[in-house]
Design a binder for these strands. Structure first.
Lengths: 224, 224, 224, 224
DNA sequence: GATGAATGAGAGTTCATTCAT
DNA sequence: GATGAATGAACTCTCATTCAT
């Protein structure tokens, strides 16, 4: 729901060029201010959706004046962009962190880990994730997915290239794009439409099959 | 995620119950009016997105008065809903048509057909499709698309169950959900982020692998 | 509620000069049309108040087209004016009719008759009367009272002048104005705020005292 | 019917519960703003009536932005309600002040004082009073005035009960209701239809007779 | 005469943004 | 820096009125 981590400031809005944060909050106070603004944004978005999100409301809920809001965010969109960024950052860390651990693990295990992490992450940030998915029009799904996935896809593509001999893949980066997109979409739609699926082992198994298929691995025969 | 099947209109998810089109355009003139309103809506949506879409603008572009717009559409959202509906209608036909043809076709061929049709459909209405995709959440059309997908998934699930012996599937309906969602997501994201991919045979091949994986089919070895 | 009598056509809108009915409905059909328009107006006014009163609604409820409405009423106001006129006409008849009967009756009896008729009339047309009182802004109360009362006051003033010797009145027309206004106001407010009073003999007695006071008559001692 | 007593604001009849003035104007500037909004409202109401009253016009005339208007008044009606309230406040003071002075005065004198104050008050705020009267129903202020009257009537009823022996009254509270309603109606209608009457001693005399009648007092013989 | 689809000015209201304090 | 009162363009939607059929 609320972004739990302090802002990775270096990664701040690159989205709208010329529309960057007006200030790099360099002091503790400023950081707290920015954090509470983002938290307020997230909460309002979750509670009342995009239409309930007004700069004044965000400021009030954050216990800050509108003026201060505009000190750190050039406009409303920047606010939401930053939120997504923060959230995406959090999500991505997890996935990227897998990389090293799995460098030498058996392919099977890597696939399982990817699927499981995707599901776990979806489960955790469910509420915010959900409303971002449902509510963000302009900036929304597109950029969200783009940012979130590109980095993950890159790591995955590298890994695929690395293990090429064990797999059967024509174009690693394409495969990575497809896998990441598909995993995300399925987990997100599950979140929105059949949340109970997120905890089912069946879904995990089905997704592993999907990934294996994408990687050209032979299906693991089911015990019949 | 593309809208797919012919619309049983009675079952349409009305977000504003009792707020359906105010008039059934029964005369040639009315139909033309409605058509031009929808066309204007589509054009504006494609050009300027949801935020550029104002009732007055739509009316002006359609060469009609706002009043007339409100004669046929209870509110702004209805306009977009109708647009999606119309568009969905067209798109869906295609997929439904597949059913009969593939009843007895070899599994391989069915998989290929599913992938190819999904891609074709996405390619065709690209522009509108694109902006609808981007603007969707705001309109709450998500559920709408999901229902359409649901029906496609149902048909697919049936087919899977039917051909169970040739496949290796734990839960046909889950598999169908995953396949449909993944295919839609990948084609849609390709449309949005890498449109050039839509015409590449590579993507088609990669998606076939995905589907095959989901169905528990052994990967077709690539010619090396 | 609904004007029950056919329109006394001669007395049609004199209110808004230059805004008179466009046509003197001379045929049976036209009269029926006008009547049903007024009835619809009355009903809507009673049900939904001034804000619910739209020309289109009136026309629809009257089973007529808007165009036809405008054939007989130059604008919305004329519609309401005519309604008031009609209603006022009906009300006034009753009061004016008293005149002859009471020409020679004892003063006491005349006072009682005036009070009783006022109450009766209020009771009868209660619903319409009520909403006219509550709802009509522009044309409303003012003209309504004016028209309704002026004629009655005239008759009353004449009667006062005639019986001058039995009464103690400084200015008959002023006295008549005061009596009529006061009676109307009290009955109307009773209608709006304490409808049960309309049927109480107490109110009648109190009003008789009022009138007697205005006429300079000694109070009838109450039996103690 | 004139608004009368000092407003116990807590008991004010809010038509839109929870929609009270958005801000308590606490600073000099705000108060000036609110004051100028009310003044503009009054002026427009007097000049052009309810239909001429638009929020934008009020704001412009007050030399303020619409936004500011909505900062202090939740909607158009609140503006008028506040106006009435303010105006009522001023008017009411006068009548309340009478109470103590007349506790022990001779009945004759009390009657005269009541009539005279009613007339005086009506004369003073004539212009605004007039347009408020004309526009009242639309605003639903009827009940508001009635409550005010109710309080005046209550005081009067008490007084009647107190002096019962000197009077001849069946039901003090009914008599008070009738007197207050009648006085208000006659003065208001005089204001609207025959403003010149308000300054005539004749009207005052006639009204005293009315009140005396209601109280069962013998008419004061006119000097002939 | 009758119709009702079409009109479009204009209403109330919101909210991103500014800037004097 | 921080504040939040003030701004006003812009939006959605209504409805009295017209006029081609």
């Amino acid at each position: 729901m609320a972004p739990r981590r302090s802002l990775p400031l270096g990664a701040f809005p690159k989205r709208h060029p010329g529309a960057r944060a007006r200030k790099q909050p360099s002091q503790a106070r400023s950081q707290a201010l920015v954090a509470s603004l983002l938290e307020a944004t997230a909460r309002i978005l979750v509670q009342d959706g995009w239409d309930g999100l007004t700069t004044n409301r965000v400021a009030r809920k954050a216990g800050v004046s509108v003026g201060s809001l505009y000190q750190y965010f050039p406009d409303k969109e920047a606010l939401v962009s930053a939120l997504i960024e923060t959230s995406a950052d959090a999500l991505t860390q997890r996935l990227v962190a897998l990389g090293p651990h799995l460098a030498d693990a058996p392919v099977e295990q890597v696939v399982a880990a990817i699927v499981e992490t995707t599901l776990a992450v979806t489960r955790e940030e469910a509420a915010l994730h959900r409303s971002v998915l449902l509510q963000l029009p302009r900036i929304g799904a597109l950029e969200f997915f783009e940012r979130l996935n590109q980095r993950v896809a890159d790591v995955l593509a590298e890994w695929i290239a690395l293990r090429r001999r064990e797999l059967d893949v024509e174009d690693p980066s394409l495969a990575a794009f497809v896998i990441v997109t598909a995993l995300d979409a399925v987990t997100d739609h599950a979140l929105l439409l059949r949340p109970e699926l997120l905890d089912s082992a069946r879904l995990a198994r089905q997704l592993e099959r999907l990934v294996r298929g994408c990687l050209g691995l032979a299906p693991r025969r089911r015990r019949r």
